[in-house]
Design a protein around this nucleic acid. Structure first.
Length: 276
DNA sequence: GTGCCTGTTACCTC
DNA sequence: AGAGGTAACAGGCA
């Protein structure tokens, strides 16, 4: 669930609640496999005493710049952060907790246990196999064309692959392809020049919309996306095709259908997005 | 209870 | 290169 807009919302909210500048007093690990690379004890020892100098994002990774290290967090399916008082007891899905010297604590909940934390040295951030940042200045039409060049894969799995463009997941890819009027199974080498241009423009449009709506929170159950303060996003009300099967296409009123592409549920308008 | 579905990614084989 | 399958894991849902 958390894709680029959700992660970006979390980053911004962490700044709003003045997490930058906080000093980590200690850490607790309730599910060891959340911590990659280091043994949980070593992780806790190493991170204790460090100050959060900055909080940013790279693709779907949260990037905490600490005094000595970089902390990368990937939320995968159900990872969530909450700011609590350090006295609050851990919840059943709490996997890691950072306790700050001011009495606050950052709780990491992750129902499905796929979320991962990586405490690395600053140099190692370059080892992330991530492609273009779609909302940065590096995402030019030229760079986009260049990253497509030579590939023959279907467009949807390509857009989901973080090594080419970083940050898109199943929801936003379906929305992008609807916006650009491209069928999800279209091979990259079949895209016209016009297709590539509309795709290039659709990506930031869809991502910025998601961010301005503070992310997508589908349904009501707990596994969903919630921001650090427990706020829901509202982008689910702006989805044009994702989980809209049976409803009319907002553009042409044709009934939205759901198919499977690369083993992923895929939503599209069969009239706007014709397979060529 | 049973089987199927789910927003992510890594790893494997062909 | 890319397609397809499996796995990690838990819970909702019919």
């Amino acid at each position: 669930m958390p894709e680029l807009p959700e992660v970006e919302t979390i980053v911004r909210e962490m700044a709003e609640v003045n997490l930058v500048g906080s000093v980590i007093d200690s850490a607790k690990v309730y599910w060891p496999r959340t911590i990659e690379i280091l043994a949980p004890d070593d992780f806790c020892k190493l991170i204790s005493g460090q100050t959060i100098k900055n909080i940013g994002r790279r693709g779907k990774f949260l990037v905490f710049t600490l005094t000595k290290n970089i902390l990368l967090v990937h939320l995968r399916m159900t990872g969530k952060f909450f700011l609590v008082d350090f006295k609050t007891s851990p919840t059943s899905h709490e996997r890691v907790r950072l306790i700050f010297t001011d009495g606050r604590a950052l709780r990491f909940e992750d129902q499905r246990k796929f979320g991962r934390w990586y405490l690395i040295s600053p140099e190692d951030i370059t080892k992330l196999k991530l492609g273009l940042e779609p909302l940065s200045s590096e995402f030019t039409l030229k760079a986009f064309k260049n990253c497509i060049k030579g590939h023959t894969a279907q467009i949807k799995p390509f857009l989901l692959n973080q090594r080419y463009i970083a940050g898109l997941g199943n929801i936003y890819v379906d929305e992008v392809l609807w916006e650009a009027k491209i069928h999800p199974k279209t091979p990259l080498n079949y895209l016209t020049k016009e297709d590539v241009t509309s795709l290039y423009h659709a990506i930031p449009i869809i991502l910025y919309r998601g961010i301005s709506n503070m992310g997508t929170t589908l349904g009501s159950h707990q596994a969903n996306y919630f921001s650090v303060s427990g706020r829901r996003g509202s982008n689910q009300h702006q989805l044009r095709v994702f989980r809209q099967e049976g409803h009319p296409c907002p553009r042409c009123k044709t009934t939205i259908i759901k198919i499977i592409v690369a083993q992923r549920g895929t939503h599209l308008c069969p009239k706007c997005q014709v397979f060529k």
